[in-house]
């Protein structure tokens, strides 16, 4: 289940990464458009990575 959830989250992130800048922000000349969107999306992925790996433990 964790694998499937990861796959779905990844696909959604990648689709958003391409679709939103083209469909929503393409002609907005502001830092608060594509620039901010890509920064926030990447930040979300980094936070997700932190949560996803929190159970990575070494055998005692």
């Amino acid at each position: 289940m964790k694998g499937l959830r990861f796959l779905i989250v990844s696909i959604v992130l990648v689709v958003l990464d391409v679709v939103v800048p083209y469909m929503v922000f393409a002609s907005t000349g502001s830092f608060a458009a594509s620039f901010l969107f890509w920064c926030l999306l990447t930040l979300a992925v980094i936070v997700y990575a932190g949560v996803y790996t929190r159970r990575w433990r070494d055998p005692s």
């Binding site: 990844s10 990648v14 990464d17 391409v18 594509s34 890509w38 999306l41 990447t42 992925v45 990575a49």
Partner: peptide
Amino acid sequence: ALGFEMTYLIFTVLFLLV
């Protein structure tokens, strides 16, 4: 250019997790 490089980073982090 930022989008291209952030796309690289997003993919890389996801691939590293897997």
